[in-house]
């Protein structure tokens, strides 16, 4: 199986879908001539031409809203936000228009748009460029939210997202863009809403999404090595829809849960998952559900400090030990 990066996986997914469906196009700032600010779309303009790969001005409210309108009339635009943080500039277009149009029209209209881009901290770009708005997006009924943590998922989820008839917020990670793994050639889909048990275990469920769940795997190795603790690691992959069944089955098996994510703690995905576990698996719990998030402040610039503000392997490891006390 070929080994490709997360970046190449995204490019392959979009390319395959552009070749499959004439209504699919990629739009965004610097996606065409510049080959993508993060080179996700490198070479795509040369291959597919300016009708399918479209450079936009720096005008997120305008071009995201335009994509929503075009989707209403049957196109399937994939809109790149150079940083997902810039979603706030297009907030009204995403959460009033894309999210609500089906509902307010009594089901007459649907909006098959994908809005994608990196949503992560850890690159020393300060608070404005480091937002992780998965819970903010998932708060809105009508919206779907996907957060792939590896190249295999990035490709399969992107293809599913493009074919989805509802608006999908697809949140990537610049630090993962260069990470490689084996990814099969050609067609495969990863369905939205299907969690992935990355590591089986019996003593504790570490559940999470995005880059933090990759760190959780390393923390699980440490737990095994130092304390002979078998942690199960569950990658949600998709926030809305949410695979409650896999979460609950894991917790029922291990009786302890720790949620890890890069977001801030207030109303985070972990808060929601903790609530679901306490609602539906309370009797199976031997300890309160614990959460490990970024430290609750705007993203700090200072490079060594930003590393510590985000989840780290060490912090996840310590949080897991506390859950097991």
């Amino acid at each position: 199986m070929p080994v490709i990066t997360y970046r190449e996986a995204l490019r392959a997914a979009m390319s395959e879908e552009i070749e499959r469906d004439p209504n699919v196009l990629l739009m965004g700032e610097e996606v065409a001539q510049f080959n993508g600010a993060y080179k996700i779309s490198e070479g795509m303009l040369a291959k597919y031409g300016p009708k399918r790969i479209v450079d936009t001005p720096i005008s997120e409210a305008g071009f995201i809203g335009m994509g929503v309108g075009a989707a209403m009339l049957g196109l399937r635009p994939v809109m790149e936000l150079m940083f997902f943080s810039f979603y706030s500039v297009a907030f009204d277009q995403i959460f009033n228009n894309a999210a609500n149009i089906r509902y307010m029209s009594g089901g007459l209209i649907n909006c098959p748009i994908v809005i994608r881009g990196p949503a992560n901290g850890g690159t020393n770009v300060g608070a404005t460029h480091s937002h992780t708005p998965e819970s903010i997006a998932a708060y809105h009924p009508g919206i779907k939210v996907v957060v792939p943590s590896n190249a295999y998922d990035a490709k399969g989820l992107m293809k599913s997202a493009i074919r989805d008839n509802d608006p999908v917020m697809f949140m990537e990670n610049t630090i993962l863009y260069g990470e490689s793994m084996e990814v099969p050639d050609g067609e495969y889909l990863v369905p939205l809403g299907k969690a992935n048990v990355l590591r089986e275990g019996t003593d504790l469920s570490i559940i999470g999404h995005g880059r933090a769940i990759q760190m959780a795997l390393k923390a699980a190795d440490l737990l095994k090595e130092k304390h002979n603790i078998n942690a199960e690691v569950v990658d949600l992959r998709s926030i809305r829809p949410l695979d409650e069944e896999t979460i609950l089955n894991s917790v029922k098996k291990t009786n302890r849960a720790l949620y890890v994510e890069e977001s801030k703690p207030f109303c985070s995905v972990g808060a929601m998952v903790a609530c679901i576990i306490s609602d539906k698996a309370f009797d199976y719990l031997d300890a309160p559900v614990k959460r490990l998030t970024s430290i609750d402040a705007p993203a700090i610039y200072s490079p060594p400090l930003e590393k510590l503000q985000l989840p780290t392997v060490e912090r996840i490891y310590q949080a897991a030990l506390e859950t097991l006390k």
Partner: peptide, 8 residues
């Protein structure tokens, strides 16, 4: 095509 919960 998707799985899982869409309402909470």
């Amino acid at each position: 095509k998707s799985e899982g919960a869409l309402f909470f």
